[in-house]
Simulated scan of single mutants.
Amino acid sequence: MSTNWFCARVLAELYPQVEVDASVLYVDNGDVVASAGTSAGIDACLHVVRRIWGARAATAIARRMVVPPLRSGGQAQYIAQPVPDGNEDPDLADVMGYVLENLGSRLDVGQLARHAHLTRRTFDRGFRDATGSSPMRWVLGQRILQAQRLLEDTDLSVDAVASQVGLSTGVTLRPHFRRLVGVSPQRYREAFRLTEAEAR
């Protein structure tokens, strides 16, 4: 279970049989989803929407709420600054845009740092300070989000989806997808299409 870091010690003391993780935004244990606070609760709700109705629905809701569409449950609670909107940190916003346009390509921290005209160390530190995540963890999250969209909208094989999002093969995609989404890519596609058919 996750809760706000401020309440974690009390929760752990009151319920010693419950494993409390105060370092993450939310935890998904299947029937129970617990979040760390107000904004993390929004992240957890978007996670549930994404799991049931798909990435497009979650992204549409996030856009309407003006919040990030995907912050993974394992992301740290402590964020030094809000995610930049393009006005506050144009270099970082430019790098994020570059990543989204090139998800199918090989990307690494050195390349992203060069794109931002920064040393690797300075870029890595600035990215973590601004987003609460390492650059490559953020890239992986965007790759998985795009994989969800492709699984929803196309009949591409899992291998083809993996290739399009820069994860080479289905063998590489599957463990990352399962860890972040909670199910395999094939199961996600089946569940999404079943839910979509029931909604008609």
Rank of each mutant, 00 (worst) to 15 (best):
S39G: 02
A40I: 06
A40Y: 00
A40W: 02
A40G: 03
G41Y: 01
I42Q: 00
I42D: 00
I42F: 04
I42R: 01
D43C: 05
D43N: 09
A44M: 03
A44H: 01
A44Q: 02
A44D: 03
A44L: 01
C45Q: 06
L46C: 02
L46Y: 02
H47Q: 03
H47L: 02
V48G: 04
V48N: 05
V49P: 03
V49S: 04
R50C: 03
R51T: 11
R51W: 06
I52D: 07
I52R: 14
I52C: 08
W53S: 10
W53V: 05
G54A: 08
G54T: 07
G54W: 02
G54K: 00
G54S: 07
A55K: 04
A55C: 11
A55M: 13
R56D: 14
R56S: 15
R56K: 09
A57C: 09
A58L: 09
A58E: 06
A58R: 06
A60C: 12
A60V: 14
A60M: 13
I61Y: 05
I61T: 13
A62K: 14
R63K: 15
R63G: 12
R63D: 15
M65G: 10
M65N: 09
V66H: 14
V66S: 15
V66Y: 11
V67R: 03
V67C: 08
P68F: 05
P68S: 13
P68M: 14
P68I: 14
P68H: 09
P68N: 12
P69E: 06
P69Q: 06
P69S: 08
P69K: 05
L70W: 03
S72V: 07
G73S: 05
G73H: 01
G73C: 05
G74T: 04
G74A: 09
Q75I: 01
A76L: 15
Q77C: 08
Q77M: 06
Q77W: 04
Y78I: 14
Y78C: 12
Y78V: 13
I79N: 03
I79T: 15
I79W: 04
I79G: 04
A80L: 15
A80Q: 10
A80R: 09
Q81T: 15
Q81A: 14
P82S: 10
V83F: 14
V83P: 00
V83S: 12
P84I: 09
D85W: 06
D85E: 15
G86A: 07
G86D: 08
G86N: 10
N87F: 09
N87D: 13
